[in-house]
Amino acid sequence: MKTVHFIIIVLISGAIAGTIHGTVNFVIVEPYLDQAIEIENRNLFASGDEKDTPEFWVEYEGYRVWQKSGQILAGAILGTSLGALFGIVFALARSSLPGNNNIKKAIVLAGIMWFAMYLIPFFKYPANPPTVGDAETVVLRAILYLSFIAISGFSVVGFYKLSKRFQNNKKFVALLGYGIFISLVFFVMPDNPDEITAPMNLVNEFRLMSVLGVTSFWASIGVILGFFWNRFDTHTETTPSYN
């Protein structure tokens, strides 16, 4: 495949998958965001930081429209970004992935990245709706979240490389090694410092919708990039590999 084709299909795949993610969020996550922001507004009125006036609601409607309209656009941007990472990893790891065609291989990789870079970090630092986060701790939370994602992602690569030294039970060694290591990291890293004051049923339902939204991205990116790769790559083999 030519480099320019590679870059284009990776970016387009990411943008499409991201747009799907944004659209799914628009339908299933937005109602929970609205509920959470309503609570946030009530808290502002109760504390006296804001007054329940027509001017407040005009300003509020203005930025809520801006925020909601950004959901799909931000999905496309985030999708293009994560798609770029997915494309790099897929190109480097494709020959080692199981599957007899690129769609299957890409779906397997998307599943691994979803698990290691989203689901496991999510259990430690789950998504929160507005009204939960404290502005004073946002930098600390960003560092913790990014660090956990990076540690989890790189440790998958590390244990995969390590497992290749073993003749038998390669998958078992990689899985066991990753499981033990990430469990240690899970308990060693500090928890999210923010106290949750919003109703837990709202928070839990929001988190479930968040997982469904992100999962729609990883499922889409695997299928779409695999499809494009099959269409544009006429030179490489697609024989199964389980190394």
Partner: peptide, 16 residues
Amino acid sequence: HELTHDMRHASGFPCH
């Protein structure tokens, strides 16, 4: 920040 606010929350990134 405001444009990406909803996606930021929905995809798990820390926000205010």
